[in-house]
């Protein structure tokens, strides 16, 4: 319960409440600062504009997808098909843009498609009680196979310049960063201050208790999946427009990166707790670590081993904290 921002025992100072409510987020944030200071001192090029830009802008789509994934996990579910979905969205968007449709159609249609697909998944999960891991495992096959059979992996190039939303730079900052920051803040307020947002925690914590409290858990699950579809859709558009080419394939291991960002950011895999600020910070932390290893001349081959160790350490720390909290 300690990771939930809204629940804290009374009789403690605001500062203590802040610390206990955002423990995981603070740890992740300090890790990012620590990395910047230490790696920047060893190799100042780590702090160059180009590198900082590539860390934040190049990984914003992962952070955006992790917002939706965090809500899914808070509600006690999981989606292993999000990487395939992002690949499909990027391909649909690119195809529409290349074939001369107005850019707003090329942006909006894939997002609506993504929300519809995920609402369908949510309905299957909520009303037939098939575990989300099974449904999304099936979706992963369907999306991946469907994408490759439809496109044969053909690259999409020559997209119109006005379509490339992730590359636009209002006030000198890549627009992907605006999306990441704005959506994280919006989602935080949404989860904390709306009835629907709070009912996500309730359903994830205990579905039957939520029902007894007057929440319709099935409707919440469908809604959460549809929302997750929205964030995956935006992530797919950012992914599609950040480079000059769309590869029409499923980005390898993307679902794993997204799930990991959510979990490291403090969303408990058991459901019921966590915040989306943490998952965005964790996505940035990953990008920093990946970049730092390169600037420290550590072989890129070891990147995934380091990430794996980090996940494990975080999970064990989370379990230890829970045990103490009991």
């Amino acid at each position: 319960m300690s990771a939930s921002a809204s629940i804290a025992p009374p009789g403690r100072s605001a500062f203590q409440r802040f610390l206990s409510g955002y423990g995981q987020e603070i740890v992740v944030f300090l890790s990012i600062i620590f990395l910047f200071v230490v790696v920047g001192a060893i190799n100042p090029r780590f702090l160059s504009d180009t590198n900082i830009n590539s860390i934040f802008a190049g990984n914003a789509y992962i952070a955006v997808a992790a917002i939706g994934m965090s809500m899914i996990i808070m509600a006690g579910h999981i989606d292993v098909s999000v990487g395939a979905l992002i690949g499909v969205i990027a391909t649909i968007a690119g195809t529409l843009a290349v074939n001369g449709y107005p850019v707003w159609i090329a942006w909006l249609v894939p997002i609506i498609f993504s929300m519809a697909v995920n609402a369908g998944v949510g309905a299957l999960v909520a009303y037939t009680r098939i575990p989300s891991i099974v449904v999304t495992l099936g979706m992963l096959s369907i999306l991946k196979g469907g994408l490759i059979s439809a496109t044969a992996g053909a690259w999409i190039t020559n997209m119109p310049a006005e379509f490339m939303i992730a590359q636009m730079r209002p006030f000198g900052i890549p627009s992907a960063v605006y999306f990441m920051v704005a959506l994280t803040i919006l989602a935080s307020f949404f989860i904390k201050y709306t009835d629907f947002g709070r009912s996500i925690y309730a359903v994830g914590g205990n579905m039957e208790a939520a029902r007894a409290a007057g929440i319709n858990p099935e409707r919440v699950v469908v809604g959460v999946f549809a929302l997750h579809g929205f964030f995956a859709g935006v992530a797919g558009i950012l992914f599609a427009t950040q480079l000059q080419v769309i590869q029409s394939t499923v980005p390898p291991n993307l679902e794993l990166t997204v799930i990991t960002a959510s979990v490291i950011g403090g969303v408990s895999i058991l459901g019921g707790t966590g915040t989306v600020i943490g998952s965005t910070l964790a996505a940035i932390l990953f990008a920093c670590i990946g970049s730092a290893l390169i600037f420290l001349n550590v072989s890129a081959y070891w990147l995934r081993a380091v990430l794996g160790l980090m996940i494990l350490a975080t999970v064990l720390a989370d379990m230890a904290r829970r045990r103490r909290a009991k």
């Binding site: 794993l256 995934r304 081993a305 794996g308 999970v315």
Partner: peptide, 10 residues
């Protein structure tokens, strides 16, 4: 999930 990344990373 963690050891999936760890073992593949190794």
């Amino acid at each position: 999930l963690a050891t999936l990344a760890l073992y593949r990373g190794l």
